[in-house]
Design a protein around this nucleic acid. Structure first.
Length: 223
DNA sequence: TACCAGGAGAAAA
DNA sequence: TTTTCTCATGGT
């Protein structure tokens, strides 16, 4: 898959001009970013914030505490984030992996491809969650692809819609300079755009809301 | 009331 | 191998 660099950069510039820097990822520590990446799977961030708040209040926002916490109790704490039973297991899987790997510091010594592969080996961590972690927690230049990225790319005519995650991530990364700050901001801006338009235009958007049901072709960011 | 949200894994076809 | 189903709360 090939994506035109100029087009991709023009989209980025347009989003940055419209919304400004997003200062991602929201979180007070690297561990909080890692936890947030799992909790936000198919879930609105507002609900994730509630869940993380519960973990903080209960003193369960560390790998050791999450592993020590009975599964049902952990599930109750993260209930606002939805899929709480599933995510409680995923959090504990990841925390076990994190401790076995020497923590964030130990994992920080791994080359990016190794880091990514090992994260993907953890049950409950798929491509997007792994890349969220690699980019936002470990500050490595990987391009995060989410549902918004796919929809926006399709709306703008730069994607066909059938590409695999790996094809999209590699295609975007190859078309842009490998800069962590750029990849950080780009993904954040796409999410911001989606939220902004969806919130502003409900119930019926006059501009591309990035939903599958939206028939509007979307704003033209092409150069 | 119905739809949607910063996915992933298991089961079924 | 590909498609479908399941997990679930909270906002609009």
């Amino acid at each position: 898959m090939r994506v035109d660099s100029l087009t991709l950069y023009a989209i980025y510039e347009a989003l940055l001009e419209r919304y400004g820097p997003q200062h991602w990822w929201p979180g007070e520590s690297v561990f909080e970013v890692l936890v947030g990446a799992i909790l936000t799977q198919n879930t609105a961030w507002n609900n994730v914030e509630r869940a993380i708040g519960n973990l903080k209040t209960a003193g369960v926002l560390s790998a050791e505490a999450i592993l020590d916490c009975p599964r049902d109790d952990l599930a109750a704490l993260i209930r606002p984030a939805g899929y709480f039973n599933v995510k409680a297991g995923r959090l504990q899987n990841f925390c076990l992996f994190l401790i076995d790997s020497g923590g964030v510091k130990g994992m920080g010594h791994w080359p990016t491809p190794v880091l990514r592969e090992r994260l993907l080996s953890v049950n409950g961590i798929g491509p997007e969650t792994a890349d969220d972690m690699v980019l936002y927690a470990f500050q490595r230049p990987v391009f995060v692809v989410d549902a918004y990225t796919r929809r926006l790319g399709k709306r703008l005519g730069i994607l066909g819609g059938e590409e695999t995650y790996a094809q999209l991530s590699a295609g975007f990364a190859a078309a842009l300079p490998a800069e962590t700050a750029l990849f950080n901001e780009y993904h954040a801006l796409i999410v911001r755009h989606a939220k902004e338009i969806c919130t502003a235009r409900k119930p019926r958007c006059a501009e591309c809301c990035l939903r599958d049901t939206c028939a509007y072709p979307g704003p033209d960011f092409r150069p």
